[in-house]
Design a protein around this nucleic acid. Structure first.
Lengths: 178, 178
DNA sequence: TATCGTTGTGTACACTCGTACACATGGGAT
DNA sequence: ATCCCATGTGTACGAGTGTACACAACGATA
């Protein structure tokens, strides 16, 4: 075997796990499926991640970072003059308009915290991350409400199949800002 | 075998499935676990519900009805004089204060629609049900926003472990009502 | 009463899963 | 140069899974 001492092995397993969850959902995640996706032997995944929960934590954390970067990209959000509600509504729209797989992936990992206490701190980190991006644009209390509202609106669109209405989202987010 | 021709067999299987999901989550749901919980042979569950998705649809639908009844109980909500935001915040608080198992159960079934298209119409029914209970108290557009906000607030409490703050919820719901 | 179709039962098959464990390998400390 | 130990590999086991299918029981219909 030539691929021994692979320093990025761990990271590649996490990436593989994210792809697997994106494709088949958490239900399709197993030591074997990640191993196959990452092209490493079974024993390698069980070595780096004793339990699947551990792997999920790492995956959610990595996804969080990707999303945070996505938020940071919106320089408009940083502009003190911009309409925060409109900008948030636009960001959500763009995000939801992308391929459903990616959106499902992030939400599924996030929602998995419901049953897995190990994921809850990471879910909290996600909320904090979004809150941070909005800090300074309005008071912290309102920020938390905005995050909750965005979650609720996205979920309604995803769970019921109702198409996302950007103008409607803008209006409702605006109502929250005093 | 004495228990043949059991007309309520189907219903008892659904109830058993709900108990199983409440205890072990959807991940713990299998034809065999429901069969054991309902005290019927394996073949009986596969006969009544060809796929697990079918069983989940039936379970979510039944849970929805239970929750709708819970909402209807609040006669205060029907009183045109009452503070809708305050009443909703109170209802959420009472619900979340109950045993976590029940809350987790309902949300897990609801959120399962993310990956299972078969559940989406039922999830939509749930939204409509809540909207119906609020109909007449404010305009339909606002109602949808209230539902989204309630979802978001509950999820934040459940996913991040942050304790639910009733007064905060009341304030934010109130902002949505024009 | 004879027949038929719905409902219920038991068992077996092929498959995937997590886990464990013995063994290989080679970088870095001594 | 030698040894240790973190890292990597291969395989096997028992438990649990969905599915299929032959058979049993009984209500209804003729």
């Amino acid at each position: 075997m030539t691929r021994r001492y692979d320093p990025e092995r761990r990271g590649r397993i996490i990436d593989a796990a994210i792809r697997v969850v994106g494709r088949s959902g958490i239900a399709g995640l197993s030591h074997r499926t990640v191993a196959a996706e990452a092209d490493v032997p079974l024993g390698s995944t069980t070595y780096h991640f004793t339990s699947l929960d551990e792997l999920l934590v790492a995956a959610l954390r990595q996804v969080n970072e990707t999303f945070a970067a996505y938020l940071q990209e919106s320089r408009t959000l940083a502009d003190p003059e911009c309409d925060v509600a409109a900008e948030l509504a636009r960001l959500m729209g763009d995000w939801l308009a992308g391929e459903r797989t990616g959106v499902e992936l992030e939400y599924e990992l996030y929602l998995a915290a419901l049953r897995r206490p190990a994921l809850r701190p990471v879910a909290a980190e996600w909320c904090d991350g979004v809150a941070e991006a909005l800090a300074g644009r309005t008071d912290p209390v309102t920020v938390r409400a905005l995050v909750a509202m965005m979650d609720g609106l996205c979920l309604q669109a995803l769970l019921t199949g109702t198409p996302y209405d950007e103008e409607y989202a803008r209006e409702m987010l605006a109502r929250l800002i005093p």
